[in-house]
């Protein structure tokens, strides 16, 4: 795939990550934002920070492509890798929560809901996975050159 595709991919995914991070910070400072629960936004500043970092890596990659292709590609590959990695972290947390709710929930305890624990790290990682499928093999091959 052409470099142009990588630049657009990095810029769009990066903007999505930064956008959701900003919404999380606004939520944390000013309180719940109406109608945004559907996007799994919450007031958790820590996961907001992680979203911001991944977005910044991807946007830096898209920006650097114009001056140094190798540098830009490195940032986009690593951004995609971080997107998938933190998506897996969020998925594991979700799975563990479901396991605990299934087997150890006590009477009177609040009912566990996917919507309470899912984060934008999950669905944004789906886009990251598509990038990984497209360019991941090329990146992994380079490990043999280490």
């Amino acid at each position: 795939m052409s470099d142009g595709t990588k630049i657009i991919f990095g810029a769009v995914l990066g903007a999505l990550y930064v956008g959701t991070a900003i919404l999380q910070f606004i939520w944390a400072i000013f309180g719940p934002l109406a109608d945004l629960e559907v996007l799994l936004i919450s007031g958790d500043v820590f996961s907001g920070f992680v979203l911001l970092v991944i977005g910044a890596v991807l946007l830096t990659g898209a920006r650097k492509f114009s001056t140094d292709t190798g540098e830009g590609m490195s940032f986009i590959y690593v951004g995609i890798f971080l997107s998938v990695l933190f998506g897996l972290v969020a998925l594991c947390s979700l799975g563990a929560g479901a396991l605990e709710a299934t087997f150890f929930a006590e009477e009177g305890e609040e009912v566990w809901s996917v919507m309470d624990v899912a984060t934008p790290l999950l669905y944004l990682a789906v886009i990251g996975v598509s990038g990984f499928l497209a360019w991941g093999r090329e990146f992994l091959r380079r490990f043999s050159l280490a």
Partner: peptide, 26 residues
């Protein structure tokens, strides 16, 4: 050499002056 290795590519980002510490914290 067949271009940059994965180590070189990862190091460009992970040891980046501005993003290195935020990535570590993440």
């Amino acid at each position: 050499s067949e271009g940059a290795s994965a180590s070189d590519m990862l190091d460009r980002v992970i040891t980046d002056r501005y993003l290195g510490i935020p990535i570590f914290l993440a």
